Simulated assay, not measured.
Amino acid sequence: MKNSILAILAVASMVACKKNETTSTDQAGDSTAMTAPAADSGMMNNTDSTAVTGTTDTKANLSDQDKKFADAAAKGGMMEVMMGQLAATNANSATVKSLGQMMVKDHGKANDELKKWATATGYTLPTSLDADQQKQYDDLKAKKGAEFDRMYTDLMVTDHQKDIAEFKKEASGGSEASLKSFASTTLPTLEHHLMESEKAKASVK
C-alpha cells in the first residue's frame, strides 16, 4: 500500500513538472510574440531641420539721421520751389525775381533726385510742408513790393545756412550711401544759393 502511494506521488510530481515546463515555454513564447520591435524614434520624430530663410528686405536700412534728413530735405525743397515761384512773379527787384527763378529750377531738380532715391529704397517722403513752413509761405505770399523782396531774401539766407549745415552732416555722418551722395553733390548748389541770396539781400536793403 505504501509503495502504491509513493508511485502515485511520483507520477503526480512528474505530471506537475511537465505542466510547469509547458507553461514556462508558452509564457516565453507569448512574451516573445508580444514583444514588438522598438519603433524607430528617429523616423517618427524626423522633421525637416532645414532652416527657413526669410526673404531679404530690399528696403535700405536707414538710420534715424537718414530719415530725418530725407524728410527735412523733401519739405525744404518743396518750400524753396513754392517761394521761388512767388518771387518770380511777386518780387519788385529784378535781382530777386532772378533769384526766385534759380531756386525753382535748382531745387526742382534736387527734389526730383531725392524722389528717385526714395523710390529706389522704398522710402516714403513727406508730400507737404510742416506747420511752420506753411506759415512762412503764407506770410510771404501776403507781402508786396520792396517788403516782399526783403522778407524773401532774408528767408533764403537763413534757410540756406540751415540747409548747408544739414547737408554737410548727412554727407559726412549718414548711413545710406546713395543718400550721402545726394547730400554731397547738392552741397555746392546750396552754397551758391547762399552766396546769391546774400547778394540779393544786400541789394534790397
Rank of each mutant, 00 (worst) to 15 (best):
D30E: 13
D30F: 12
S31Q: 14
T32H: 08
A38R: 03
A38K: 04
A39H: 05
S41N: 11
G42Q: 00
N46C: 00
T50Q: 03
V52C: 09
T53H: 08
T55D: 15
T55L: 14
T56H: 09
A60H: 01
N61W: 03
N61K: 14
D64Y: 03
D64N: 13
Q65D: 13
D66V: 06
D71R: 07
A72C: 03
A73N: 09
G77P: 01
M78A: 00
M79V: 06
E80F: 11
V81H: 11
V81F: 09
V81A: 04
M82S: 04
Q85W: 10
L86W: 02
T89Q: 14
N90T: 11
N90Y: 07
S93V: 12
S93P: 01
A94F: 06
A94V: 04
A94R: 06
A94L: 09
T95H: 08
V96W: 09
S98Y: 08
S98W: 06
S98L: 11
Q101W: 07
Q101N: 06
Q101E: 13
M102V: 03
M102C: 05
M103H: 07
K105I: 03
K105D: 13
D106P: 00
D106S: 07
G108M: 08
A110L: 11
A110E: 10
K115G: 07
K116T: 12
W117P: 09
T119D: 14
T119S: 14
T124E: 11
T124A: 12
